[in-house]
């Protein structure tokens, strides 16, 4: 009943699903990393670097960074469409919302690409 081109999946269900799946990925990732840290006791740079540098963690990190990007985009997009609206802030809302969404989208993309470079750049 409502169309929205700036949403991620252009569809409520896919956004909702992406939000849930990305949350699960982030939760699992957090458990793995925190578990590793606890198991290590004292953490050295070498140990951390070695752990993060292994292929399994490179893949996991990729999942994580994509999940963060998707999760953040959907969440923040929702925030902009809840609060940066004509109803809330008046006539200028559409311009402000578009601007905010552009900034958020750009930042998300930058972090995503930068993260990927960090993860895979050492190979």
């Amino acid at each position: 009943m409502v169309t929205s081109v700036t949403t991620l999946g252009r569809n409520g269900l896919s956004d909702w699903l992406v939000q849930r799946v990305s949350a699960v990925i982030l939760a699992v990732y957090t458990v793995v990393v925190v578990g590793w840290l606890l198991a290590q006791g004292e953490v050295s740079y070498e140990a951390w670097s070695g752990f993060m540098g292994c292929l399994a963690m490179q893949i996991a990190n990729t999942f994580m960074i994509v999940a963060v990007g998707a999760h953040a985009w959907i969440g923040l997009w929702t925030v902009t469409t809840d609060y940066l609206t004509t109803r809330q802030i008046g006539a200028a809302a559409t311009g402000i919302r578009l601007l905010a969404q552009l900034v958020i989208a750009l930042l998300t993309l930058v972090y995503l690409l930068w993260g990927l470079v960090i993860i895979w750049g050492g190979v």
């Binding site: 009943m1 569809n11 409520g12 956004d15 909702w16």
Partner: peptide, 11 residues
Amino acid sequence: ARMDDPFSLFR
């Protein structure tokens, strides 16, 4: 189908 957008239901 009519509710499968980001607002109608998913808000």
